[in-house]
């Protein structure tokens, strides 16, 4: 009963936050776009047509057409699928790897803690984008490899957050009580540690989906991510570079799509942070 009221409180605080609601509305629209892409997009993702090259935005082609005569609006709509997928899966990768490492470091004492944290220090000494580029370069350019590269790159941040919260929970009296009545480590982790360290994880994960979307676009822009003709926003921007001087719409719309996606994810993340931890709110 008590638990339910906590989440109810979170929800009430969340929907009172106008910016957070705006974020969730935009995000819902984007998700609907991604799910129903075949019904929304008037054209296919790779419908090349030499007669419709470089048409400026108009009623027939909302966002104009590109150098192959493809409808940019359709490609941006389908691109939402890829970006949201990359964002979610790479965050899941960071959550699992970072979460497990952080929890082991905090729960199993000095030795494991030292080894894991020093290893993470090393990864954190490499600027994030440089690390993602190096991993992507090593694995080769593809959708899956890109998600692994981004997920690994962001994992140390998760590990630190989980470690900090597990360290503080571990010292709580209810954990000690649980241990005294003979609960195993597994039960303690599942029953006490995970539920209580969930809040900072959720916030970090939401904010990281946005970061991952940007990282994915950046890697594709550099030619280290998704390859054409897949309609990934960063890859579309990379292809548009050569035509920047004459055909602005090829650059403007995929970028706006990224902006809108990350903007809404950040609003939701900020809203969740304030709702989950009212003490932090300024």
């Amino acid at each position: 009963m008590k638990k339910k009221s906590y989440w109810m409180g979170v929800w009430e605080r969340f929907i009172k936050n106008r910016m957070a609601v705006l974020g969730i509305v935009i995000l819902t629209c984007l998700i609907l776009c991604a799910v129903f892409a075949p019904y929304i997009a008037p054209y296919g993702i790779d419908d090349q047509n030499s007669k419709t090259r470089f048409i400026a935005p108009c009623a027939e082609f909302l966002f104009g057409t590109d150098n192959f005569g493809r409808d940019i609006f359709s490609r941006v709509v389908y691109g939402a699928r890829i970006s949201l997928q990359v964002g979610l899966i790479s965050v899941a990768v960071s959550c699992v790897i970072g979460g497990v490492l952080g929890a082991i470091a905090a729960f199993y004492g000095t030795m494991a803690d030292n080894i894991i944290m020093r290893a993470l220090d090393v990864l954190m000494a490499i600027p994030g984008m440089v690390l993602a580029v190096a991993i992507a370069a090593s694995l080769g350019p593809s959708l899956n490899n890109m998600m692994i590269a981004i997920g690994l790159g962001h994992a140390p941040g998760f590990a630190r957050i989980v470690r900090a919260s597990v360290l503080s929970i571990k010292e709580q009296e209810y954990v000690e009580a649980s241990r005294l009545i003979g609960d195993s480590d597994f039960v303690i982790i599942m029953k006490h540690i995970i539920p209580n360290s969930l809040a900072p994880m959720i916030v970090q994960a939401t904010l990281n989906v946005g970061r991952s979307v940007i990282s994915a676009a950046s890697l594709s822009f550099l030619g280290l991510g998704i390859q054409p003709p897949t309609p990934e926003w960063g890859a579309m921007l990379s292809a548009s570079r050569a035509y920047l001087r004459d055909y602005w719409w090829m650059t403007a719309f995929p970028g706006l799509a990224i902006l809108l996606t990350v903007f809404s994810l950040n609003l939701v993340g900020d809203g969740l942070r304030d709702a989950l931890d009212p003490k932090l709110k300024h």
Partner: peptide
Amino acid sequence: GVAMPNFW
């Protein structure tokens, strides 16, 4: 600003 990819 924080939602924009810098290259774009």
